[in-house]
């Protein structure tokens, strides 16, 4: 029950099927890496799970601790415990980072209950410090004018503040230099626990040196074509994806 379970998921965009029967189970306490060539459907998977309106689910289901997510609206899924760190985070002009986080936290409280503002700010400043984010970012509009790396750190900050049950990180390493990558990885590692599952989407094995996964999956053309231990990532780095794609051809 304590897993994020994707069952035979088919999804399409503008009539083209992108996910073609994808199954995956991420139990709490584990970190799963999802690798795959550009265009294989990694971001599509993340957005379908989050409930993006552009994607149509043909069949299959996604369960969060046994509850079907597909029945829920986007915000309900979030409050249920699903977090998506976006590959391309949106910019929200006029809404300060602090107010945004505060609203997101407030949205998780029962009606009539107010968040403790002092404790909230303290927690936010602490977490920002861990991620090396300057205090002045609290007053800046969400992601507006942020560099690629600043946006990614901000995604991780949001994850740390919202403490989801399951986090899907979509190419959180892209746009980060090696120092920033280490900081972000530290942030994620600090959140690893028996109470939380991660699906880390990445194109490169570099990130996985710092966030060591329990399992690695390879996605190609909307299907998982190989799953294995963390060493699989290294093998991929050496041999490239074609090695697996060929294997897939031979098998089928």
């Amino acid at each position: 029950m304590s897993t994020l379970e994707i069952k035979d998921l088919h999804a399409s965009v503008n009539g083209t099927e992108i996910l073609k029967g994808l199954s995956l189970s991420v139990p709490k306490g584990e970190v799963h890496a999802m690798m795959g060539p550009n265009g294989s459907g990694k971001s599509t998977l993340a957005k379908v799970m989050a409930g993006h309106q552009d994607y149509e689910v043909g069949s299959g289901d996604v369960f969060l601790d046994g509850k079907s997510l597909l029945e829920m609206d986007v915000d309900e899924r979030s409050r249920e415990g699903l977090f998506l760190a976006f590959q391309y985070p949106a910019e929200i002009p006029g809404v300060s980072n602090a107010n945004f986080l505060r609203a997101a936290r407030q949205a998780r409280l029962p009606d009539g209950e107010e968040i403790d503002a002092v404790a909230f700010y303290q927690e936010m400043y602490d977490k920002m410090a861990k991620l090396g984010i300057d205090k002045k970012f609290t007053g800046r509009s969400v992601n507006e004018g942020f560099s690629g790396g600043e946006k990614k750190r901000n995604e991780v900050l949001q994850m740390m503040m919202l403490e989801p049950k399951y986090a899907v990180l979509d190419e959180t390493d892209s746009g980060l230099d090696i120092d920033a990558l280490k900081i972000v990885a530290q942030g994620v590692n600090a959140m690893r626990s028996e109470e939380r599952g991660f699906l880390v989407i990445t194109h490169y094995q570099r990130l996985l040196e710092h966030i060591v996964p329990d399992h690695v999956h390879v996605l190609n053309e909307g299907r998982i074509i190989r799953s294995g231990p963390k060493e699989l990532a290294l093998e991929l780095e050496e041999k490239g994806y074609d090695w697996l794609k060929e294997g897939e051809l031979v098998k089928s």
């Binding site: 979030s78 910019e91 949001q158 919202l162």
Partner: peptide
Amino acid sequence: EQIFYMKQRGLS
């Protein structure tokens, strides 16, 4: 996209 982003963080 912006609304989607905000909803993903739990806002209606």
